[in-house]
Design a protein around this nucleic acid. Structure first.
Ligand SMILES: [Zn+2]
Ligand SMILES: [Zn+2]
Ligand SMILES: [Zn+2]
Ligand SMILES: [Zn+2]
Lengths: 125, 125
DNA sequence: GCGACTTTGACAATCGTTTTCATTCTTGTC
DNA sequence: GACAAGAATGAAAACGATTGTCAAAGTCGC
């Protein structure tokens, strides 16, 4: 459908880690794509809502996006320095979160789980 | 030391759930306290750094603060509607996160885990 | 009281994100 | 093709939480 959607999708597809909207916008412009910042935001939002793209917030409140390989529920192990990201699953955590919610009488239980660290490449001084 | 620190501490102590800086500032002003927004931010930052107060980000990017009962590492089960919050611990999750990090060669592994839901009181229409 | 140092808070500045709205495509119809 | 109606686009303005600035006010030791 939208050619802009494809442009943004492509930018994410060729990225290893999570990237911010501004970041994506800048690199798209750098490579000559004619696209506006507003549209990048809109497409990212649409892609996120459709589940094609994962979004999370960095420590400083910026939203960052990533096109993950799997479309199943999963979490991330993210390198604080280079952004390298590994998709991880943890059935035990899923069950634990659900159980904790029910145990306290909560319904519609969801959770956010992210793991941060310094990856092997970035760890060597 | 600072009387302002105590004011903010008190505002948090009498709150059940997480509250934003602006929110705290507004209610302090409402009850006649003479304090500036900048100072509320500063005190919250100091309290957070000292570990007395927990901070997390809401879906819409706002930072919210809470004076938790325990000073040990823990996570939260938060009601989406009324904000009621339960402090929860999950040794298994701690180990899992650490293991996932090491398994992929990551060091200085940390994690964020929050559980959201609708509490019993808010669930009944 | 006085100087040195710290704390405070009104205000301006920052910055990611969202709104606005006029212009530019698309698409369906004649 | 021409043309109207609707959707998509993006430049610029608006927004809102947070942070920086800096002069005034408070604290402390003397
Ligand atoms: Zn790395
Ligand atoms: Zn999960
Ligand atoms: Zn509730
Ligand atoms: Zn933990």
């Amino acid at each position: 459908m939208s050619t802009r959607r494809e442009t943004v999708r492509q930018a994410l597809a060729t990225s290893e880690g999570f990237r911010s909207a501004q970041d994506i916008y800048a690199s798209l412009r750098a490579e000559g794509a004619k696209v506006g910042l507003t549209t990048v935001y809109r497409q990212l939002q649409a892609l996120t809502e459709s589940g094609e793209v994962d979004m999370l917030r960095t420590d400083d409140g910026e939203s960052v996006y990533r096109a993950c390989a799997t479309d199943q529920h999963h979490h991330h192990l993210v390198c604080r320095k280079c952004g390298r990201t590994v998709e991880v699953e943890g059935p035990a955590v899923e069950r634990w979160a659900e159980a904790v919610g029910l145990e306290h009488g909560f319904t519609d239980v969801t959770h956010t789980v992210e793991i941060f660290g310094t990856c092997g490449s970035c760890g060597q001084p």
